[in-house]
Amino acid sequence: MKPDLHVLGPILALVALILVGAAMNSNFLSAANVTNVLSRSAFIGIIAVGMTFVITAGGLDLSVGSMAAFIAGLMILVMNGLLPTMGPGWPLVGVGVGAAIVAGLIAGFLNGFLVTTMRIEAFIVTLGTMGIYRSLVTWLADGGTLSLDFGMRTVIRPIYYDGILGISWPIIVFALVAVLGEIVMRRGAFGRHAAAVGSNDQVARYSSVDVNRVRMLTYVFLGLLVGIATIMYVPRLGSASSSTGVLWELEAIAAVIIGGTMLKGGFGRIWGTVIGVLILSLIDNILNLTDGVSPYLNGAIQGVIIILAVILQRERKAGG
């Protein structure tokens, strides 16, 4: 088969960005910078993998940023609360991790329940839960910042900063999630069903696919991944506040779309999403590493690149 330019689009954009970055600053390709960029991409990246499934199945989730903030707050509170009885150490970290995962699953289930069983528009449901989680975390933090007890912070720190063979844990987890997601999307019955539901839910229903179950699972899966992303996030600064995770949902959605998944559903690809996430992180990184661009214009440059990436894809699609 001839190489499909539509497929190559996001890859070319990424390569171009890397070339620009390397030309701008000699430290760009240093191990430290690469590690930084990849690790910080991990939160959005892990979430964006889940978002790809939700969008592929014709849904949307605006609540992930707030959900992450809320889960982070909850995880910190749980660990701080149990610290006097359990003492600082890995068992307590385990409890915190468990709390984050359970909270993520419940939050995802709630979104899914409202969208499927209650038949409310996904946009409205998740806009609602977005506000709910955001104010819950503000309330939990009493308007300020929730900080993990200092003793625990030292224990949990390695989850973000350490790793194996010089590769930090967030990168490893992100890679695992992405690879598993790619396999499920391409070769799993679930991925095929999600695409069918997003493509035409009537056809899926008439083909004996349990449409509600598939939709529900995409939200639950996304909730789980938000929980996992939070587990990576909390050790970094050991705190959560109402400004945690602001606009993560839009970054995740933008990454998904840049990667070639269709916003109206029916087709999704995880590797594209991963590239989309990397493109977004790299733009920030390059702007920080470069002089000469007014920092006031960072948002504009990001916006232009996002729109360009999508336009390029569409033209390639029409042409190819």
Partner: peptide
């Protein structure tokens, strides 16, 4: 509208 996913291939 109900039988086939028009944007997908025959295999799917």
């Amino acid at each position: 509208a109900r039988g086939l996913l028009l944007a997908k291939g025959m295999r799917e």
